[in-house]
Amino acid sequence: MIVGVTYKRPDYDPIGIMKKGEIHDLRLHVERVETMYVYFIYGTVGEPEILRACKELFVDPITQDFSYTHEGDSLKLITEKNAWLVQVKSKTGVTDAVGESAMKAMALIGIHGVERVESAFSYIIKGKLTESELRTVCEKVLCNPLIHNYRYVRV
């Protein structure tokens, strides 16, 4: 199961606003950066449990929305068009503290059958960036290539 958590409005999204500023520091200009927290949940967990985990753990209902899918590409959770979508995830072997905490928290609210949770971060970047500019943005602003892998698509 893959869960994505987004902000209801761009001005609620502190990381997006900060990343946009950092992209501007590179002298590249984008219109908007939005973020999505992504959780990959492995194990035998049913849809009602996932819904509960979203509502009780992953989402602040005042500022955030969520969506989920059973399988496939997490970037497909993003409905935005005409944008670059980037996903940043820890490399194998790098401790995923967010994933560990999410798994522990699910057990604490009585959701069982979770074998592993991995976390990632997705970005929606609106604006005119070439592919090589986007790569620069990924490596200088969105991730640390030493510990993160990233991938991107144009939609």
Partner: peptide, 15 residues
């Protein structure tokens, strides 16, 4: 990947 993961220390304050 194996080696790069060693270079950096990742914290977990909750732990």
């Amino acid at each position: 990947e194996e080696t790069s993961s060693g270079a950096v220390q990742i914290g977990n304050p909750i732990k």
